[in-house]
Amino acid sequence: MRLIFMGSPDFSVPALHGLIKAGHEVVAVYTQPPRPAGRGKALRRQPVHEAADALSIPVRTPEKLRHNEEELAFFQGLNADAAIVAAYGLILPEAILNAPRLGCLNIHASLLPRWRGASPIQSAIRAGDAESGVCIMQMDKGLDTGAVILSEATPITATDTAGSLHDRLAEIGARLVVHALTEQPTPIPQDDSRSCYAPRLERKDGQIDWNRSAVEIERQVRAFIPWPGSYTLLEGQTYRIGAVTLPDEAETAALIASAPAPGTVLDDRLTIACGTGCLRIDRIQKPGRAMMDRDAFLRGTKLTKGMRLD
């Protein structure tokens, strides 16, 4: 088929490669413009931009598509059979959605309608979902509300982070979109009553609320790896948390028998009281230093029983 591909981050790259490998003609790639990144804030191209260049596919980087008549005319002039969208980052106006012969198909990293929105992977882990997956969706003008063409589930393990689940879902999405184009099954409308919203995340969302249960905090830490990360405050300084574990029931009962305030350091092993239960910090990063394991951290930082984290 004659396709337009629209994507930006690493998640999108396997799908682009998969479509090319399957023999489809990708006539143009749309991606977000280069953005400042790193310490020097030099402009950095999106991963999809780099991949498209390596494949010698023309790249378009409009700042917006809404009220952009010039870009709409160009898009329509491509005469595409379909547009494949994977974490592109711009809202597609209705004229763009309707331009390809088969419309626009979205690779969405959730078992719709479970998580609609910008952070479905993080939201699934944080909520304690047993599984996640990918849906190939026929896009409409709503937010992830279109009919589902194909879907595939994958379990969320007790050790999954957003990073590990992201990589798995990206590979599933690449395979599934090729099948969707080949098989063209009948789309199935979503049940809107079962939908949840996965909001766009910011760095400030990573601050740990020690009033929450230990189980919820442990899920947050995994859900926010690699981004936006989780952190806590100690004496006004920010400490990033890279990994935590939950003590067993007997140890937990002994440690919280005195009903310590949430955020209290309970022992010399970085065990912290939570709103319900407690957890143990396994990896932590002090300001200006690299992430380190608990023992290395405690050799250089005095964090005594009874101190409080915010």
Rank of each mutant, 00 (worst) to 15 (best):
R2N: 10
L3F: 05
M6Q: 03
S8H: 10
P9G: 11
D10S: 11
F11Q: 03
V13Q: 05
L16P: 01
L16K: 01
L16T: 06
I20V: 07
V27Y: 12
V27K: 10
Q32M: 14
Q32K: 13
P34H: 08
P36M: 07
G38H: 08
G38S: 13
G38K: 08
L43W: 01
R44W: 10
P47R: 03
P47T: 06
A52S: 06
D53N: 15
A54P: 00
L55K: 14
S56R: 11
E63R: 13
K64V: 09
R66H: 10
R66Q: 12
E69S: 14
L72T: 00
A73E: 05
A73F: 00
F75W: 08
F75H: 07
Q76D: 02
A82Y: 05
A82R: 02
A82C: 08
A82G: 03
A82E: 05
I84Y: 12
I84R: 09
Y88R: 09
G89A: 07
L90D: 03
L92K: 00
E94S: 09
E94F: 12
A95I: 10
I96D: 00
I96K: 01
L97N: 01
A99F: 02
A99W: 01
A99S: 09
A99M: 06
C104E: 02
I107L: 09
I107S: 03
S110F: 02
P113H: 12
R114F: 14
G117S: 08
A118W: 04
I121P: 04
Q122W: 02
Q122T: 07
S123P: 00
A124M: 09
R126T: 12
D129R: 05
G133A: 08
M137Y: 00
Q138H: 11
Q138W: 05
D140L: 12
K141D: 12
K141G: 08
G142E: 15
T145G: 13
A147C: 10
S151Y: 09
E152N: 14
A153C: 04
T154Y: 12
T154I: 15
I156H: 04
T159I: 15
T161L: 05
G163W: 00
G163I: 00
S164E: 12
S164I: 11
L165I: 00
L169C: 08
A170G: 02
A170T: 03
E183D: 12
Q184K: 13
D191C: 15
R194N: 06
S195I: 14
I208Y: 01
D209H: 06
D209G: 10
R219Q: 10
R219V: 05
Q220S: 09
Q220G: 04
I225T: 14
I225C: 12
W227V: 12
Y231M: 08
L234I: 09
E235P: 06
E235W: 15
G236R: 11
Y239V: 05
G242A: 05
P247N: 08
P247M: 11
E249G: 06
T252H: 04
A253W: 15
A254W: 13
I256Q: 10
I256P: 05
A257E: 15
A259K: 14
T264L: 12
T264S: 15
V265P: 01
V265S: 03
D267G: 14
D267T: 13
I272D: 04
I272E: 05
C274K: 01
T276L: 03
G277V: 00
I281C: 01
D282P: 09
R283N: 02
R283G: 00
I284Q: 07
I284C: 09
R289M: 10
F297P: 01
G300H: 06
G300D: 06
G300R: 06
K302G: 04
K305S: 11
